[in-house]
């Protein structure tokens, strides 16, 4: 392109010395479209803030029923906010391209006299660094948070360092059943859990793959035939929470639901007593 320079007149009389880098950035920022895009960028980024709040707030249709779920909500919130600037920037550029830099319609091929920008090492480098940094952040966050979540699942978040309660989860078409081996193998089709005591779920299936999902507790694990899978949580909210099957398991997959009921110590003991367990 530089060979053609002699024939095309410069738009402004050139100065006799190159601008220092700071000034070059200054002239770049002074261009009108840069200001406009920056303004749109800010707006497009801020759009994501309420979205992040809504997403994290409504995960599982309500407040978290365990610290584990809290960690999941935090992850979604942070990821949305961290990616917002990049998403907002792309959105701003396509909006400005759509409306801002001018448009021509008609059937004839127009001569738009657009600048032939072929590559811009600075832009590519900055973009790559920003994106790589973002990806690096997401990976790091994911690794740390996954470790945290695994520790929660292993019962690290219970205040009194109680021994985990083992619950055997059996899935079959289209029914959940739960048995408590330490309580003499009593079994139930509703999941009863003690408050603030870690629980370890061992899950297996009698026929096809199911997925055991206590929605507001963030417990989710496939229930496979021919394998035993593990999950765990410490419920820290009293109440009743939906359990759904999250893996297509045949005709009544949609209705393979039950409740997880978290009981305080007195209710838990009386439930055990009603099941004939003496402790």
């Amino acid at each position: 392109m530089s060979q053609d320079l002699d024939t095309s007149p410069p738009p402004e009389p050139p100065t006799n010395r190159p601008l220092p880098p700071g000034d070059r950035l200054g002239t770049f920022l002074a261009r009108p479209y840069v200001k406009h895009i920056a303004a749109i960028w800010v707006v497009c980024t801020l759009i994501w803030v309420p979205i992040a709040y809504w997403l994290a707030g409504n995960m599982g249709a309500g407040p978290a029923a365990s610290k584990l779920m809290g960690a999941l909500k935090e992850t979604v919130f942070v990821f949305t906010l961290v990616s917002a600037p990049l998403m907002g920037f792309v959105l701003a550029v396509i909006l400005y391209s759509w409306l801002g830099w001018g448009r021509v319609s008609g059937d004839e091929v127009p001569d738009l006299k657009n600048p032939a920008i072929k590559g811009n090492p600075i832009a590519v480098t900055i973009w790559t660094i920003v994106v790589s940094f973002l990806a690096f952040f997401l990976v790091t966050w994911g690794i740390v948070e996954y470790t945290v979540v695994n520790n929660y699942a292993a019962g690290s978040d219970n205040p009194e360092k109680l021994q985990p309660l083992e619950v055997h989860v059996t899935g079959q078409q289209w029914l959940w059943s739960f048995s408590y081996p330490e309580q003499g193998g009593i079994s139930s089709e509703t999941l009863f859990l003690p408050h603030n005591r870690p629980v370890v779920f061992k899950a297996t299936s009698k026929d096809v793959i199911h997925n055991f999902w206590i929605v507001p507790m963030g417990v989710k694990i496939d229930v496979n035939p021919g394998a035993v899978t593990l999950a765990g949580v410490t419920p820290d909210t009293l109440g009743s929470f939906p359990i759904r099957c999250a893996e297509l398991c045949g005709m009544h997959h949609a209705f393979m639901q039950t409740q997880a009921v978290v009981l305080d110590k007195a209710d838990w003991n009386s439930w055990l007593a009603s099941m004939g367990v003496t402790s």
Binding site: W101, V104, S105, L112
Partner: peptide
């Protein structure tokens, strides 16, 4: 897209 007029 940058700095380009567009044929819509």
């Amino acid at each position: 897209m940058w700095r380009g007029k567009v044929w819509t």
